[in-house]
Each structure stands twice: as structure tokens, then as C-alpha cells.
């Protein structure tokens, strides 16, 4: 049995974690912690309840909407239903709506999804392609780092036991930006990604000026693959460029063989999904994709509407 510490402020949380290193565990939505606790994967003496910290929750647009700050305790369901993010960070909203069930999304938080460190987690790829930074509070104050540096391995982050993820900051260009999240699963819902892929492009006219490609579930940590993105920059995102990005992403990842697919299969699927996600991101960036309409999970439209 664990005791519960209900923190009143971020500083109190950090102080409590510092005073109970190794025996305390922050709990946000609980959808991972409660399972881990029941399975005996974690044995905290203290659960540090973050739900009363309003400072950690919320989606806030700043700098005339060019930057969005997402509190770490923001529920996945809130991301899913946010209309502005739906238009300007489509990959993030697509990933949110594929995560678990309505019930899980109502409970689970973006910070919890990131800090649990699951390689197949839904949130990292779209946040990585939207160039997220994360703000961390610790005993010596706040620090900001690129999200890509947060992940340390399966189930692990670089955070110290007395550090807390406070918020994410994403830059959202005004226009000419598009993104997409796709994944391969066994079931079409309520599943974990065998391969998760996000792509984002910024387009000037019809030329890609910036691109990012991120992968989940195909390495010990979520990956940002610059080589794949570079294959898109300067192109008009023709089929050849998309395929080249897919090939480079497949070469860059290091998947394993497990119950959810073989190593070689996952590489093949990375190539396919990166190609499709890049194309859909480009369609969005160029206004050729209906606003607010999510892509099918594997990026293939049902054939009657294709």
C-alpha cells in the first residue's frame, strides 16, 4: 500500500520528491502507474498526486498563436478535442485520438505518456515533428530542453527522481505547415503501435522548406530522423522524395522482433508509413486536405473515396 501526497504547488512536488527519492512516484492520470503498481512493476511508498496542480494543465496559445504551451497534466482528450490544434498540429490530434479509449484519454495526460517512456507511446512522434521543447522543474529551478533529449531508453527518461515535467512548447507557423501521424496496429483501435510515424513539413509555394520525421516503436526511444526529413526539403514532395524519406527512415531505425512484428517487417512498414505521412502532411500544408479530417490510421483512404 502506498500513501498519497497531494501537492499544492510545483515547488512542493519537487521538494517532496527530493525528500523521498526512490520511494515516491508522481501520479498524473494513473493509466500507466496504476497498472504498473498492480503488476508489481513499481512499488512506491508514496504516490505524489499532481491532479490538483492547475498550473500544470491547459493549452495556451502565445505570441499571436505562433507558440502553444501545453501543460504536462493536459489530458489527451483535451488535445484530441482542441479545434486550433486540429488545424495547426494535425499529427498531434491524430495521435491523441488513436491513443487508448475515450475513458483512457479522459484520464491520461500528455506528460504521463511522455514520462512513462514507452517506446511505442503515441505522443512523442507528433510532438517531435512539431519541434517541442520541454520545461522541467527540479530542486535547482527550471530548465528547458528539446523533447528529443528527454528519452533515455525503454521505460526511462533523463529526468532525475526529483524532477517534474511541467510543460511542452511547440512552435506553430502561421500557414504552410502540415503534419500527420500514422501507425500500424493489429486492431484498428485500442491497440499499441507496432510502428508509429509522424511527419511535418513547412511549404513555401509548393516547395518544402522545412521537414521533420519522427518514429515510435522502432527503437529503444522515439527517434527524430533528420536524414529522412532532409530528403523532403527542397522538393515538391513528389512520390520519389516521399519514398526516399521512407527508405532513409527505415535505414535509421533499429526495431526488434517481438509478438507485434518482426524486425524486417517493421522496417518495411516504417518506409511505407513515412512515405504516406509525408504526402498527407504536404497535402495539409498546401490546403489540399479537408481541414479537421483525420487520416485513416494507416494512411490509406477507403477505396471508394480515393
Amino acid at each position: 500500500m502506498a500513501e498519497v501526497f497531494a501537492a499544492g504547488s510545483i515547488e512542493e512536488v519537487v521538494a517532496f520528491l527530493a525528500g523521498h527519492r526512490g520511494v515516491s512516484l508522481p501520479i498524473a492520470g494513473g493509466t500507466d502507474v496504476m497498472v504498473d503498481k498492480r503488476n508489481g512493476r513499481v512499488h512506491p511508498e508514496w504516490l505524489v498526486d499532481l491532479t490538483s496542480l492547475e498550473a500544470l494543465a491547459g493549452i495556451e496559445f502565445r505570441e499571436g498563436g505562433k507558440v502553444v504551451r501545453i501543460g504536462s497534466m493536459t489530458r489527451i482528450r483535451s488535445l484530441e478535442l482542441d479545434p486550433v490544434l486540429g488545424r495547426r498540429a494535425a499529427a498531434l490530434v491524430e495521435a491523441a485520438r488513436l491513443l487508448g479509449s475515450v475513458q483512457i484519454r479522459t484520464m491520461a495526460t500528455v506528460g504521463g505518456n511522455l514520462c512513462h517512456g514507452t517506446p511505442s507511446a503515441e505522443m512523442p512522434p507528433p510532438l517531435l515533428v512539431h519541434d517541442a521543447d520541454c520545461e522541467v522543474a527540479g530542486p535547482s529551478g527550471r530548465r528547458v530542453m528539446p523533447l528529443v533529449d528527454l528519452f533515455a531508453g525503454p521505460g526511462r527518461t533523463v529526468l532525475e527522481p526529483d524532477e517534474l515535467l511541467v510543460a511542452l512548447e511547440l512552435r506553430l507557423p502561421d500557414s504552410g505547415v502540415g503534419s500527420c501521424y500514422l501507425r500500424q496496429t493489429v486492431r484498428w483501435s485500442m491497440d499499441l503501435a507496432g510502428v508509429g510515424v509522424a511527419a511535418a513539413v513547412e511549404v513555401d509555394g509548393s516547395t518544402v522548406t522545412k521537414a521533420r520525421v519522427a518514429l515510435g516503436a522502432v527503437a529503444p526511444v522515439p527517434l527524430l530522423v533528420a536524414e529522412a526529413a532532409n530528403a523532403l526539403v527542397g522538393t515538391e514532395l513528389d512520390a520519389g522524395a516521399a519514398a526516399e524519406a521512407g527508405r532513409r527512415a527505415a535505414a535509421a531505425c533499429s526495431p526488434i522482433t517481438d509478438a507485434r512484428g518482426t524486425e524486417s517487417y517493421r522496417r518495411q512498414v516504417v518506409a511505407v508509413l513515412v512515405e504516406r505521412a509525408a504526402r498527407i502532411a504536404w497535402l495539409r500544408a498546401t490546403g489540399s486536405w479537408p481541414a479537421g479530417v483525420p487520416a485513416p490510421a494507416n494512411g490509406v483512404l477507403p477505396s471508394e473515396v480515393r
Binding site: 498519497v4 497531494a6 501520479i27 494513473g30 493509466t31 496504476m34 497498472v35 504516490l47 498526486d49 491532479t51 482528450r77 479509449s101 475515450v102 475513458q103 483512457i104 479522459t106 484520464m107
Partner: peptide, 12 residues
């Protein structure tokens, strides 16, 4: 709002 009560910490 719907939650799965098995994973919902009562305290929260």
C-alpha cells in the same frame, strides 16, 4: 466524463 474506475485513484 467516462473513466475506467479500475485505474482511477479514488483520492483524485
Amino acid at each position: 466524463e467516462p473513466v475506467v474506475s479500475c485505474l482511477q485513484l479514488l483520492r483524485q
